[in-house]
């Protein structure tokens, strides 16, 4: 039952705004990054930029429901939206449970939305590679907005923040959540803080964040606002969206946006380079050699640095002249 994909046909359909083609191109890029250039070379003429929003927070704070609620408002304004929902892959089985889409059922049939669930898998260079590629596909497809939703745990997910222009950090009432996020360093990256499930309280955590913000310095004079929402009833979502507009306007006017775009691509370029170096290295150093130094390290753990140094000593990267 394995499906064969014909890239040229898919590109043609993609340009006709066919969602089936978009979905399949995502699969191809996700599974075969080496085919990315074959795909992207078809989009050289496209100049469209999407505005990218990142939504993060601990599991269970209602990120997906909130994403659905934001999407609903944006759709009402006639905007098109591409959503990427990232969930972790189990390190034991390699499988994943992708349970975000179920929170967005209400908007899922709108012709202007496309939702893709993504497992973090064991990507070299982190999950952000696949995410960035999908944002590029969404941009080529002409989406007005892209929403990236992640749990924001671990270094590789953390890097997703480099891809978004406005980052919303979602929390729920109770200090525990704020403290956990503070520990994880996530709390410092927000452009907007959202206290969801406001029906359960929320004043406490809002005050806590406010205090924390008092101690921070702000990039470009933007003090992150704190919004309270109830994503089930939609209460407060309008205010949240107002704040997104404000932040968008702020970074556009202050030229922070082009700075953020630069980070987005600089980051990607570095990642692609490292990926290439990885492949070169793999061709130069084989598994037996690695096993060998691991065995050696067991004999004398303090030798690790020397062993690696020795192994690397006969590796030479050279840059050929391009002319």
């Amino acid at each position: 039952m394995r499906r064969e994909y014909d890239i040229d046909l898919l590109i043609r359909k993609f340009k006709e705004k066919d969602k089936i083609a978009l979905a399949r191109l995502i699969s191809i890029i996700e599974n075969h990054p080496e085919k990315a250039s074959d795909i992207f070379k078809n989009f050289n003429h496209i100049k469209h930029d999407s505005y990218i929003i990142g939504i993060t927070g601990s599991p269970g704070v209602g990120k997906s429901t909130l994403t659905g609620a934001i999407a609903k408002r944006l759709l009402k304004e006639g905007k098109s939206i591409g959503v990427i929902s990232v969930d972790p892959t189990s390190p034991f089985s390699g499988g994943a449970f992708l349970g975000d889409r179920v929170r967005m059922t209400e908007v899922s049939l709108d012709p202007n939305i496309f939702i893709r669930s993504l497992a973090s898998r064991g990507y070299r260079g982190g999950i952000s590679r696949a995410v960035l590629d999908i944002t590029l596909l969404y941009e080529a497809f002409g989406m007005d907005f892209i929403i990236i939703e992640t749990v924001g745990v671990g270094q590789s997910e953390f890097e997703i923040y480099n891809l978004a222009y406005t980052i919303i950090v979602v929390m729920v009432p109770g200090y525990g959540d704020a403290i956990q996020m503070q520990k994880a360093g996530i709390i410092e990256i927000g452009d907007i803080y959202d206290v969801n499930k406001k029906d359960l309280g929320g004043a406490d955590i809002a005050a806590h964040i406010d205090m924390m913000l008092d101690d921070s310095t702000f990039q470009g004079g933007w003090r992150p606002p704190i919004v309270q929402t109830n994503s089930i009833t939609g209460d407060g979502v309008d205010e949240l969206i107002e704040n997104i507009w404000d932040h968008k306007e702020h970074i556009e006017l202050s030229d922070l946006l082009s700075e953020k775009k630069k980070i987005r691509f600089a980051y990607k370029i570095k990642e692609l380079l490292y990926y290439k170096i990885d492949i070169v290295l793999e061709s130069l150093i084989n598994q037996d050699e690695l096993n060998h130094i691991t065995t050696k390290a067991l004999e004398n753990k303090f030798q690790i640095y020397d062993l690696v140094h020795d192994l690397f000593s006969d590796v030479k990267f050279e840059r050929k002249s391009k002319s």
């Binding site: 979905a23 089985s93 499988g95 994943a96 992708l98 889409r101 059922t105 049939l109 893709r116």
Partner: peptide, 25 residues
């Protein structure tokens, strides 16, 4: 999931939502 598959949980879906999810995912 434990067998290594990626499981997209759709929950309640009418057939239109189900097919659209199957396509997009």
């Amino acid at each position: 999931r434990d067998a290594g598959m990626e499981l997209i949980f759709g929950g309640f879906q009418n057939v239109e939502q189900c097919v659209e999810s199957a396509i997009q995912e």
